[in-house]
């Protein structure tokens, strides 16, 4: 049993997956994950997924990018290497805006992109869910709902039966 990762049900459409996810959550399962070839609106909410870290880190890094740009410009232009250019004041801040602006964008964009990957645990070489039969079609036209063996309510027969009753075309035990 310890080798077991999850009981995985295969569904034919996003609606069935959605309904199954709702039903499974109502039954009280907590360690549930759904896999789909398309983003399904609301599915993550059904699974009680809520992670505000990504938008916040983007915001913080954006502020940091702006501070880096403006700070670097101010420090170099007024303290480290003051240099008279066209009689302008050393601290000619309107001229510093474009670079600070671009660095804000650079920092926040890369935080959004890379942060998404890191929080998603990617890159990752392997994951037990890939042992599921026909999972190669999860990137095309099949929808999967996995109930992990770690879940308190998990019971081999009962969980399988429940997935069957929810309309799964195929229910498989997936090993680690």
């Amino acid at each position: 049993m310890s080798k077991m990762y999850a009981m995985v049900g295969e569904f034919a459409s996003p609606e069935e997956l959605m309904n199954a996810a709702i039903a499974v959550r109502e039954k009280g399962y907590r360690k549930v994950e759904a896999y789909s070839p398309i983003p399904i609106e609301g599915l993550a909410d059904v699974l009680d997924f809520d992670d505000p870290r990504l938008p916040w880190s983007v915001f913080i890094m954006g502020v940091l990018g702006c501070a880096t740009g403006f700070g670097l410009e101010t420090w170099t232009a007024t303290m480290n290497y003051p240099w008279n250019v066209g009689g302008k004041p050393y601290f000619s801040w309107p001229n510093f805006i474009p670079v600070a602006y671009e660095l804000t964008i650079l920092f926040s964009a890369f935080t959004a992109g890379l942060g998404m990957l890191i929080l998603n645990g990617l890159p990752r070489l392997h994951h037990p869910i890939f042992n599921t039969p026909r999972f190669e079609r999860a990137s095309s036209d099949l929808f999967f709902l996995a109930i992990e063996a770690k879940d308190g309510l998990f019971d081999r027969e009962e969980t399988a039966q429940m997935l069957q009753d929810l309309g799964a075309q195929l229910v498989s035990e997936v090993e680690k």
């Binding site: 983003p39 993550a44 997924f49 998404m116 929080l119 998603n120 990752r124 070489l125 890939f130």
Partner: peptide
Amino acid sequence: LGWRGSAEHWRRYE
């Protein structure tokens, strides 16, 4: 990068 298309992945992705 090991994309699995889980609901969590998609949410962060969007």
